[in-house]
Structures are given as C-alpha cells and as structure tokens.
Amino acid sequence: MLKNYLSKTVLKRSLALILLAILSGCSSSASVRIDQEFPTVLAKPKAISATVVFDEAFATYIAQPNKKTVIDIGAGQVKLLSNAFAGLFEEVEFVSSLEESAGENSLVIIPSVREVQVSTPSENYLNVFEVWIKYSLEIQTADGETIDSWFMPAYGKTPDAFMASKSRAIEEASIIALRDAGAKLMLDFYRIPAIYGWMMEQKILEESE
C-alpha cells in the first residue's frame, strides 16, 4: 500500500518536473549575460597611439530593450572592443576614466551604447531572432578637440529552432551582433572622413603606406 503510494507520488513529481522543463523552454522572457572570450583580430595596426575610455556605465552596461528581455553586454563588449582597437592602433591604452590617462596618445576614443533593440519571430514574422546594438564613438585629439562622433550600428541574427529557448537564441544573436561591431570597426574606422582627414593632416597615411 505504502509502496504503491510512494511510486505514484514519485511518478507525479517526475511528470510535474518534465512539464516544468518543457514549459521553461517556451518561456517568453529572456535574461542573458555575454562575457565570453572573442577571437583576436587578424590585422596590421597603424602607427597611431590611442587611449580608449571604457567608463563604468559602458563596462557594466545592461540593456533592457523590452519588459521581457535583459541583455548584460558590458563585459562582452569591453573584451570585444579591446581586441578590435588593438588591431587598429599600434599602441593602445585602456582606461576607465579620462583622468587615468597619461595624455600622451594622439587619439582619445570614448565608446557608449545609444540603444539596444531585439526582435523575435512573433514580432518580425520571420524565423529569426535579431539584435541591434547602436554604438556611438566620441573621437577626440589628445588636446580634447572633437574629431567626430561616429554612429556605429551592429547587427546579429540567429535562426529560430524548434523547442530552443528564447534566452539561448537572444544570447547567440547578441554574440553575433558584438562580433559584427568588431567587423564594422575594423572595416570602416579609417574610412570615417574626419579620421581620414585627421590622418592626412598628421601625415600618418603617408608614413604607413
């Protein structure tokens, strides 16, 4: 009798746990943290020295694009952009505030996040999860004179998969968006007209060619 009761209880609890596990896969909210390592960039840096300011707001940035989604990209974006800037400049100094800088480098770059947006298959009617990260790069000379305020959008998407969790899909799309930010920076930084003009002025282009 007791044995029967116990086996029924165990069976019920197991069924409840299985149901809970299945339902958790269908959860409509997502909270993800991106702090993985990113590959180093394959590029020859130019003979420029720069100071990159990752202030606390940037290094601990947590995006909440909607009520049900939280993406902690602070640590991930610092790792990613550290790699990318090391591929752009021969000498690069990373500081958490401008006061910490020795002020010896010719460029100062202060990145910030303007906005993060997500889109899910129920919103876009496509079988993809999408993440946009919109960065702004404040680029100054060593004297504090603004060269440009560059808008740098990054995009990542991942396909929707049967029974896959929303969190996992948004995490993957965010990682792809961060990698895209690195690609965009490497591809377009020296094509910014103001940067190109500054380099011509400093005769950096002639030296590196």
């Binding site: 590959p39 960039v41 792809i176 690195g182 690609a183 490497m186």
Partner: peptide, 12 residues
C-alpha cells in the same frame, strides 16, 4: 572563421 576574424563575418 575565428582564426581569420573579422574577415569572414556576415558583413565582411
């Protein structure tokens, strides 16, 4: 793709 980053990303 990692070994040649960022030259084989969707953008590049």
């Amino acid at each position: 793709i990692d070994s040649i980053y960022p030259w084989f990303e969707p953008r590049t």
